[in-house]
């Protein structure tokens, strides 16, 4: 448990306990009276029609794909940002090329309308 990540593991454990404790305590005192109407999904009083597990619209996938590209870019950029001063002008040139390449894809996505919420 010692080491720099130990306290974070402890923090996660205690946060879990902090969430579970009030749930347990309230579980002891709350009323439990399930009812056909009370437990129905609340959709403004109108009865639910059709299945709820519908498919996600395609436009969400477009954003998810773009997100993966730019998030991977961010993962690459973090070590670059830390080591930047030790690498000098070479690092600046490199990152301008790297971001430039991504910008080509970004402009392509923009022109294709992938950034348009339809």
């Amino acid at each position: 448990m010692v080491g720099s990540f130990g306290p974070i593991v402890i923090a996660i454990a205690i946060a879990t306990a902090f969430g579970l404790l009030p749930l347990f305590l309230s579980g002891l005192i709350i009323p439990k009276m399930p009812d056909r109407v009370k437990n129905a999904p609340y959709e403004c009083g109108v009865e639910t029609i059709g299945p709820t597990s519908i498919q996600f619209h395609t436009r969400y996938y477009l954003y998810a794909l773009l997100f993966v590209i730019f998030d991977v870019e961010a993962v690459f950029l973090f070590p670059w940002a830390v080591a930047y001063r030790h690498l000098g002008l070479f690092a600046l040139t490199e990152v301008v090329i790297f971001i430039g390449l991504l910008l080509v894809g970004y402009v392509y996505a923009w022109r294709k309308g992938a950034l348009q919420w339809v």
Binding site: I29, I30, N39
Partner: peptide
């Protein structure tokens, strides 16, 4: 108040 409210799990 929230501590004493019923914990509802909807059907389905």
């Amino acid at each position: 108040k929230l501590l004493m409210k019923e914990d509802i799990v909807p059907f389905g």
